[in-house]
Amino acid sequence: MRERNARPRLAVWKFASCDGCQLSLLDCEQELLALGEVIEVAYFPEALTRAVRGHYDLSLVEGSISTPRDAERLHAVRRRSARLVTLGACAASGGIQALRNFADAREFMAAVYAHPAYLHTLATSTAIADHVPVDFELRGCPVNKRQLLEVIAAFLAGRRPAIPAHSVCIECKSRGLPCVLVAHGRACLGPVTQAGCGAICPACHRGCYGCYGPQETPNTASLTRALTALGLERRQLLRLYRSFNANAEAFRSESERHAE
């Protein structure tokens, strides 16, 4: 075992996000003590009042970049981090807030805020990797805590995390779940979505919502043809592809084919 004083330093950062992915870390109740044994949680405002300043061996970054200030802050985080791993759909693709990328953000501001002039925001919400080099992107909305622990354990061991980039279908079939698309005619993004959640929605007889973003080789055009044959209309297709990962390349370009 590592000496306590030689523990690597961990920092957890938040950008534009709902905090759900950070909560997945706190949700690792059984493993939190073991985690504290092997890693020094040096910066984690969601959980700690004290903060160790300086450099970090591993930074976990949640959220997307949606303000000029965050864009600058992210560069500072990168400079102070030996390894940078992003958490969740916001950090990997811009999140649900990236719906602004398809509209005029100023109109939203005017509709919501009494004095939008005080807001300093970017016209788009973008992924962390669009701004700084990223060592690993952990997908999900929110991330899966077992996958999160796997990424940290892999970092500590100096090995590649075992996080497959294949489809959700493989998780469904490995669990013995019948296909909701084939057996019930339900719209499901599973064939074009990356695995990781353990096929939560199909296990509840629902189609996949695409929380983990596009799988490694997504064929959205072919899936869209199948969904159209099931009776989905243009507007439904648009909404299906435009959710938590609306700005992920494969989902974004497919959704644009169904836009007004």
Binding site: H166, S167, C169, C179, P191, V192, Q215, N219, S222
Partner: peptide
Amino acid sequence: RCLACGNCTM
């Protein structure tokens, strides 16, 4: 047409 989803092999 192929989705490369792996269903056929599973």
